[in-house]
Amino acid sequence: MIQEFLRSTLPLDSSVTLKRSDTEPDTEIAHARSEAFEIVSDAGETVGFVKAWEDDPSFRGYVHFDSDGNVIDWKVFKDRLQS
């Protein structure tokens, strides 16, 4: 579900794909589900990284890094509860 969320919100062009990274979950947000991804070009080069998390479907976010580990974008999404 996190990968689908990123595909719909992360501004990536069609020349790159998300590849799930094998990383340990972040213990600081153990109550949330988190995943890490490499952003890979069509040529197979890693051009960036994304760490994303989801506490529940109404509260989630991501941090987008360039290939050197510098933060490009950081977003948090909180849906308003419906009455």
Rank of each mutant, 00 (worst) to 15 (best):
L81F: 04
V47T: 12
K19P: 00
E28Q: 14
F77W: 11
K51L: 12
S41W: 02
I39S: 09
G69D: 00
D66I: 08
H31T: 14
F49T: 01
Q3F: 14
D66R: 05
L6N: 10
T23H: 03
A36T: 07
E4V: 10
D56E: 10
S21M: 08
D42Y: 06
S41A: 09
R33V: 09
I29S: 00
R60V: 05
E4K: 14
D56Y: 14
T23F: 02
V63Y: 07
Q82S: 08
P57H: 04
D22H: 05
S15F: 02
S67V: 09
A32W: 10
S41P: 03
V76S: 04
K19N: 06
E54Q: 15
S41Y: 06
A43Q: 13
R60I: 04
D42V: 07
E35N: 06
P11N: 13
S15E: 08
D56S: 12
F65D: 08
E54K: 11
R7Y: 10
K51V: 12
G61I: 07
R80D: 13
H64W: 15
R33F: 09
I39R: 05
R20E: 15
S21R: 03
R60G: 06
D13C: 00
F49Y: 13
D56G: 05
V71W: 10
S58K: 03
F65S: 11
L81W: 04
S67P: 02
V40H: 01
H64A: 05
D66A: 10
E24D: 12
L10Q: 08
Q3H: 12
P25D: 12
P57S: 03
S14T: 10
D55S: 12
D13V: 01
